[in-house]
Amino acid sequence: MSEKIKTKKMKVSKDDRIFDIVKWAFLGFVILIVLYPLYFVVIASFSDPTYVNNGKVLFWPKGFMLTGYQRIFKDSRILTGYMNTLLYTICGTFFGVVCTMLAGYSLSRKDLPGKTLIMLLFIFTMYFQGGMIPFYLIVKGLNLVNTRLLMIITGSVSVYNIIITRSFLAGNISDELLDASRMDGCGNGRFFFSIVLPLSKAIVAVIALYIAVVHWNSYFNAMIFLTDESKYPLQLFLRDILLMASSTINATSEADPEAAMKLQMMGQVIKYGVIVVSTVPIICVYPFIQKYFVKGVMIGSVKG
């Protein structure tokens, strides 16, 4: 009897060991695949382009050089792009948070006639849209083409954010709290600003980050609607530099093959540097704000 239990236990622990091996192999592989490209971009950006292009740079920088970065910081496009993106992100996030909090709060109130209908109308837009061209025609009709205002507004209000805000507020602001404040003569406005808002710091952080990431990353609307380079967000300049630069470099320096070669190599190192410069701020801030994103996903998943 005891013998039997023992063999069973042994077998279980052996199976578990196989499970653990598979688990760590999988996780190790995933972590390596995620980290190595990022690490490589960083070391390549500090290395001599000749080594990088010959595949000599694999695990540590070789021929330490900062020329790429010097070129990048001289390039006014990066600075312009950064300023524009910051402007669009900050203003857009503020606008989006205000709209989302106000709407989310109203829809979280059980005593608001018509809220189900409004909610339905909002949710419908998540599953059915007019599409790119009608959207373009509307924006054109409103004279918002090539304006900074459009860059700030679009992408700021999303129904998904309104829904998670509503779920959060419905779960965190109790009816008793509302009733009690009403007894004390507190109206809807004062209740929202002096009681609800201070209690919703977590959800404000979550939706602010969601909106900010959308603004930081978007390029397509800017590409469609902006014609002035001075209004371009960072991502649009990055697209020029990272994905279209090689052709212009080839075109400008055909005359001298050696110079052309050098320029092209330089171009590669500049690309690595540009990726670093444009992504490091996010990656550095990200571990500190990660918990808010996770919180957002969790609040969102409660409702489904």
């Binding site: 990431v213 930081w216 990353n217 390029y219 994905l243 992504t279 996010i282 990656i283 990200y286």
Partner: peptide, 9 residues
């Protein structure tokens, strides 16, 4: 958190 443009770049 890496943008699409940077990813493709």
């Amino acid at each position: 958190f890496i943008s699409t443009v940077v990813l493709v770049g």
